[in-house]
Each structure stands twice: as C-alpha cells, then as structure tokens.
Design a protein around this nucleic acid. Structure first.
Length: 111
DNA sequence: CACATGACGAGGG
DNA sequence: ACCCTCGCCATGT
C-alpha cells in the first residue's frame, strides 16, 4: 500500500470517540496537504475494508459531506451517539469537536 | 491521449 | 450566510 494511504488509515484510526477530523487535515498530517480529495475517495471506496471510524471524518466547513441521505443520516446518528453535537444548521462546531493530535495547552481554562 | 468526475478547500463577491 | 470559481489530482471512460 502507498505510504500516503497507509498514513491516512493510521491517522483515522487514532481519532478518538466524540471527536472529528477534516479531510484536508488528515491529508496534511499524512504528508500531502493537497490530498483532501484522495482521502475522500479512499473513504468512499475502501472504508469497509479497514474497520475505520469513517464517520469521524467531515469537511472543513463542519458539514457531513455525503450526498446520499441514508448514509449521511447514519453518519450523523453515529456521531450524535458518541456525543458530537450538531448546530441548528446541521453542522459541527470544529472549535469544540475537531481533534488535534498536537494540541497545545492554552490559558483559557486557568483564568 | 482528452475529458469528466468527485465524502475537498480557499477565496471572493 | 450563500453562491460561484478555481486549484487540485487519482480514477474512470
């Protein structure tokens, strides 16, 4: 398997419950900042093959990016079932739910 | 080889 | 917030 694809698999596997990552974010972290579409295509075709938490991947606007109602609704339910909240406009607040592997502490909680 | 197609993303009006 | 355009790039026809 291609190294890029391999990294993508590993990165997605590491997304914790209740958190999400964007296609572009995953692509960057896997070493190709312009590979968002490849990440998407990979999930579209091979998500069943690797036991991945595919539902924790959304687009950069915080939207579920599936056209088919059945599957997009499933994705929403899976996310809600693990604590991810949707706004009134059916989007996810990335500030709250996006997973950053290398997050740094800030002072907000200490004030 | 030329062209169309996306589970994308950034930028501008 | 919405819509459009453009850049991107592996795959498919």
């Amino acid at each position: 398997m291609e190294p890029f694809t391999q990294s993508v698999v590993e990165i997605i596997k590491e997304i914790p419950e209740g958190k999400v990552m964007t296609y572009g974010q995953i692509a960057s972290q896997a070493g190709n900042r312009r590979g968002a579409r490849q990440v998407a295509r990979f999930l579209h075709t091979l998500s069943t093959k690797y036991e991945l938490p595919w539902h924790r991947v959304i687009n950069s606007k915080g939207e579920i990016s599936l056209s088919d109602f059945e599957s997009s609704n499933l994705q929403k339910l899976l996310l809600e079932s693990e604590g991810v909240k949707f706004t009134r406009s059916n989007t996810i607040d990335l500030n709250e739910f996006q997973y950053h592997k290398y997050d740094t502490f800030n002072d907000f909680d200490l004030i």
